[in-house]
Nucleic acid binder design. Structure first.
Lengths: 343, 343
DNA sequence: TTGTAGGCGTTATCAG
DNA sequence: CTGATAACGCCTACAA
């Protein structure tokens, strides 16, 4: 149509070789006229790599993950990459299936928020062999030695715990997530470090491990609240758990923050709309995602430096669910049943 | 490796021709051994279609959309399809770019939640020509004549409004979304129908149009609350707006539901955690997404019936933000400034 | 029932 | 600087 050969068109479109101005113009004109778009499929087949970035997350319904996805998508899109999104449902076998199939698209890279118990070492190796980077986000699989982007879970919960201690709390309970997940483990570690530093003991029953959801938080908070002496502050390893804890406090006829302070982690939107509003450790899912995508693109540009572990800062977001312990709470006040206010 | 030719392997993998049991077994064994996975790229190139489904949504950070995505992904994945996700940011030009590029992947179909002012007629036509279906979800672009899946916005808000009327409210305000969006338009229509049927007049200032977010809801609710006589109930066209309205009520020194009832739309998670908890019209994003994916797969199986418009039911979810009007509210009670309780 | 060969739309190589 | 040509991995006629 432009009176030139196939190869010349390709050269124009990819700037892969010098093309005379006149022909280049003719080609571009024709491209405009027909609305030609190169087939990404054929291009990928030939180049042995595409402009897709695979992204595997546990569950997009968990309100924390969409932010990560969006951060990754923004960076990817503005650099000409597209995202293929899969939910692993925290199911490692589903994750493996997705990993294997995604690879046959020859993606430019892979961003993974690992499922429970995932071990991606072998898979990542095979991706790397085909020239695609793999970045883990938020939590790390067992023995992970590749690139990663995480928040500073340890420091975040250390600071949050410090704050509770400085307010005068001396009996602190923690509701921790599944300890095989690195993020749960790290958050617990920060909590323990702060306690140890303040020389505050932590009886084992003050630590309750459960799943990262409202039900878990509710069940374990109920247990904590029945302990004698009762903790005056509860650190929940994420906001969903904190929400469950808030409910449990209400149901136990106690008040937050007067009887029990509650601290969450993640700083999701719901923190602002609960009653009382939830104090929380803020981490930016968006930045997690965008940093991961950027890391991937750097690798693709030829960055072959050793594995990078990007660790993002957290910030303490104080709201109404945290206060100094009242004397009453400190020295014991019976938990009488009251009508719960709605959350 | 299995001692057979290329074509036989292909026949085994696709069941495309009879293959003797012995060879079939040998092939499968070899496939297992090497962990062979066919290249989706090459397969797509040859078949002129892939197992990808493109999905374009306005913004995954809007808490309503992830549910739609998840619904679509579940159906797609369990049928062997994958989702390519793009955020249009409600920007029609970005949407067009994505539409054009996505097509070059020869996707099996496209699921779109249209951006503002989008007109997809031409694009959809070109997808259809290449054998890929297009389904619009939640809202419809101008002049859309193709497949769609939406909630019954009109009936949902009609019922919600009926409920308010039955409680005895006679002065109802509405905060509506941008009226060029079909979902906003339909919700308004349901509201108006209920009012008309009850022979309740609606002065124009009782209707406020704004964006589908908290800020919009807050601003417009503030205006509604200053009207004399003040409405005793406010219907917000989505939950984010309802949340903003709740805030505005608080700031005006009024109480919800005693002075003003508030009704939302969408029934998002946050409805349960606000204070008071928000009554809302529930629509299932998950079902919206899964129905859309199913529709697409049907089309692919050869369903060539005329355009389908699947309309899903809504349900009224009553919580604490709605109550009969008090005499005080009904006959006028000064709005004195009070200390706001946190939401 | 099995094998062979052509071509899907690109890009890279290489000769002109 | 440009054009012809071979491959990328797969599927599908068609031939054996």
């Amino acid at each position: 149509m432009a009176g030139v050969s196939l190869g010349t068109v390709s050269n124009v479109l990819n700037n892969s070789a010098k093309v005379s101005e006149s022909k280049r113009a003719r080609v571009l004109e024709a491209v405009q006229a027909v609305g030609y778009q190169p087939s990404q499929l054929a291009r990928g087949l030939r180049r042995e790599t595409t402009n897709m970035i695979g992204m595997i997350i546990p569950d997009i319904l968990n309100p924390f993950f969409p932010a990560v996805v969006r951060g990754a998508e923004d960076v990817a899109f503005s650099n000409g990459y597209r995202l293929i999104l899969c939910n692993s449902d925290n199911d490692h076998s589903k994750e493996i299936i997705q990993l294997n199939e995604l690879r046959t698209y020859l993606p430019a890279g892979l961003i993974v928020i690992p499922s429970n118990f995932s071990d991606l070492t072998a898979q990542a190796e095979s991706y790397r062999r085909s020239g695609a980077g793999v970045v883990c986000v938020d939590r790390l699989p067992r023995n992970w030695s590749g690139d990663s982007v995480t928040a500073n879970h340890e420091a975040g919960s250390y600071n949050a715990t410090r704050h509770l201690l400085e307010l005068g709390h001396t009996r602190l309970g923690i509701i921790t997530g599944p300890l095989h997940l690195t993020n749960a483990k790290d958050r617990l570690a920060g909590f323990k470090r702060a306690l140890k530093q303040a020389k505050i003991p932590m009886p084992p029953e003050y630590m309750q491990e459960t799943t990262f959801d409202k039900q878990g938080g509710h069940a374990k908070a109920t247990i904590l609240l029945r302990l004698i002496p009762r903790p005056t502050a509860i650190f929940a390893s994420n906001d969903m758990m904190a929400l469950g804890a808030l409910l449990a406090v209400r149901e136990s006829g106690l008040r937050c923050p007067e009887d029990v302070s509650i601290m969450g982690f993640d700083d999701m939107d719901l923190c602002e709309t609960t009653n009382p509003s939830l104090s929380s450790v803020s981490q930016s899912g968006y930045q997690l995602g965008s940093a991961a995508a950027r890391l991937l693109l750097d690798r693709r540009q030829g960055d072959t430096s050793p594995a990078k572990n990007i660790v993002l800062k957290t910030a303490l977001r104080l709201r109404d669910s945290v206060a100094p312990p009242t004397d009453e709470a400190q020295y014991g006040r019976p938990a009488k049943k009251r009508h719960g206010r709605p959350l």
